[in-house]
């Protein structure tokens, strides 16, 4: 390696305010918060199999957690705020590192072969953008009821049926959930690395665990809408 350095040729250093690794840690921790939420959300969705009353009752409970010590839907709003902060932090870090990576290789290879990368790792960024679009649609549809007029706040069972009886909605949902699964397949492994918790011995276990969690979440989220689409839940 050449070891001469003449100071005149040195590029002026930009202030290193936050390092790329710090941004990665933000992405990992916000990602883990979102994964924990997804696990809880999946369990909630599966209550649809217990029938409309059970499901609506669960929804009612979400709006009254901690009552009467906490007034109204305080707990639910706290959860929503935590999620919003996590999503904003996650996307901020992702976009900032995306930009850094683009600037790091302005001229592409004429021929480039992928040797080690998985499809999941390649689709983290654009996959993430599609997931964001889905999350927005999903909130409009099932939280705000902007897509169909069935059901009402605190009694979402009918609204959910109306949405997923529409094959277009269910297919968009399915594609997005599979993308989330892939995002987590790479994301859980990546987060373990980012937080410095992986090593050669654990690597295999971490990767199996990532695949297992991603698969369980994907299947868990797909069960409810497809059961509705095929009339198993009505």
């Amino acid at each position: 390696m050449v070891t001469v350095t003449d100071s005149t040729q040195r590029r002026t250093p930009k202030a290193a305010k936050t390092t790329s690794v710090f941004k990665k840690a933000v992405m990992a921790i916000s990602g883990i918060v979102l994964v924990l939420y997804l696990i809880a959300h999946m369990i909630g969705n599966l209550k649809a199999f217990a029938g409309a009353d059970e499901f609506n009752h669960y929804s009612e409970w979400l709006r009254t957690i901690g009552n009467p010590a906490l007034p109204g839907a305080t707990a639910l709003w706290l959860i929503r705020i935590v999620l919003l902060v996590a999503v904003v932090a996650h996307i901020w870090a992702a976009v900032s590192l995306w930009r850094q990576a683009r600037n790091a290789r302005p001229e592409r290879y004429v021929t480039k072969k992928a040797v080690a990368q998985s499809y999941a790792s390649r689709t983290m960024r654009w996959g993430g953008v599609i997931i964001l679009a889905f999350v927005i649609f999903h909130i409009l549809d099932l939280t705000l009821g902007a897509v169909n007029s069935e059901g009402r706040d605190g009694e979402p069972f009918d609204r959910m049926l109306a949405s997923f009886q529409n094959p277009v909605v269910t297919i968009f949902y399915a594609i997005s959930v599979i993308l989330v699964g892939m995002h987590l397949r790479h994301g859980i492994w990546s987060a373990t690395q980012t937080l410095g918790q992986s090593n050669r011995r654990r690597e295999v276990t971490v990767n199996y665990a990532a695949t297992a969690i991603a698969t369980v979440l994907t299947i868990g989220f797909l069960l409810t809408p497809f059961s509705i689409l095929f009339g198993l839940i009505d």
């Binding site: 590029r11 250093p13 930009k14 290193a16 390092t19 790329s20 690794v21 941004k23 990665k24 590192l97 850094q100 990576a101 600037n103 790091a104 290789r105 992928a114 040797v115 080690a116 990368q117 998985s118 790792s121 390649r122 983290m124 790479h186 492994w189 990546s190 690395q193 980012t194």
Partner: peptide, 13 residues
């Protein structure tokens, strides 16, 4: 970071 390298996404290439 100052040199303009990208950040790691643990892809393994």
């Amino acid at each position: 970071d100052r040199e303009g390298f990208g950040g790691c996404t643990n892809i393994g290439e």
